[in-house]
Design a protein around this nucleic acid. Structure first.
Length: 239
DNA sequence: AAGTGGCACAACCGCCTCGTC
DNA sequence: TGACGAGGCGGTTGTGCCACT
């Protein structure tokens, strides 16, 4: 039985009051972030440390950019999601002033639906259409297996845990790379609406400085992805 | 005006990772 | 090297608001 992260009894839950916010802000202003477990007591808050951290990171931090997402930001989220999957903190890290929670919420409430409406599977960024297969042996394959369910896709929502975050990123990067390659070349690409693919502006995918390694993706580490992403241009999707 | 369905977003929960001992 | 604790992360839920009937 796992120990609870904090004492459940005597702690407030639910929406934060103005007084609580102010206490948290004041405390962090004077003592800085960190040691979240002891913070509530020290700050005079009847809250779980995790709750304080979340409140600060997602709402109270002074550098938070609030308001609607711009088109550029939306494009970037889609692009990063194609590469990283549901790694919201990494995605948010590329969007100054945005939090992982905000990005996650925006994805789930806006972008996901938008992609679905456009016939794109938001999990793997592929067109969600059933491509008929000539091979009769594959007749029993479900539609899901031919589109959204394919294990060779990005499958951003996979529940299968991988050993380390680097491994995960390596895995995703290579999967993303295969998708990008699939969609921009090869015989199957004729079935895709290329206007909707996740594409990088010309001159090209492979030539882009910093990108080849990412695209090929075999030995890409998290840090390399971070570095490479700095060179990524804005998506042309939805333009 | 009341009911209700959808949406947006804040917050919680539980698992994972990483650092320390 | 394994155990443990703290922080981080992603999935999910709760709730308030708004538009529509």
């Amino acid at each position: 039985m796992r120990k609870p992260c904090c004492e459940k009894e005597g702690t407030n839950k639910g929406a934060w009051s103005k007084q609580e916010d102010q206490k948290l802000i004041d405390y962090i202003k004077t003592h800085g972030e960190g040691c979240w477990r002891s913070l509530p007591k020290a700050a005079g808050l009847h809250r779980c440390g995790k709750s304080c951290r979340l409140r600060w990171i997602n709402y109270l931090r002074p550098d938070i950019k609030r308001g609607n997402f711009e088109q550029d930001e939306e494009d970037l989220i889609i692009k990063l999601h194609a590469l990283l999957g549901n790694r919201w903190s990494l995605i948010a890290g590329r969007l100054p002033g945005r939090t992982d929670n905000e990005v996650k919420n925006y994805w789930n409430s806006h972008i996901r639906k938008k992609l679905i409406k456009m016939g794109i599977d938001p999990n793997n960024h592929r067109l969600n259409q059933i491509i008929p297969r000539p091979n009769p042996q594959n007749d029993s394959v479900s539609p899901a297996a031919t589109s959204s369910g394919s294990m060779s896709n990005i499958n951003a929502c996979t529940k299968t845990p991988l050993k380390s975050s680097d491994d995960q990123i390596d895995h995703r990067a290579s999967e993303a790379a295969s998708v990008l390659e699939d969609e921009t070349s090869g015989p199957s690409s004729r079935d895709l609406n290329l206007d909707l693919t996740i594409a990088f502006p010309e001159p090209s995918l492979q030539v882009e400085e910093g990108m080849p390694k990412l695209i090929k993706g075999s030995n890409t580490t998290a840090r390399e992805i971070e570095t490479n992403l700095q060179h990524l241009p804005t998506l042309v999707l939805f333009r």
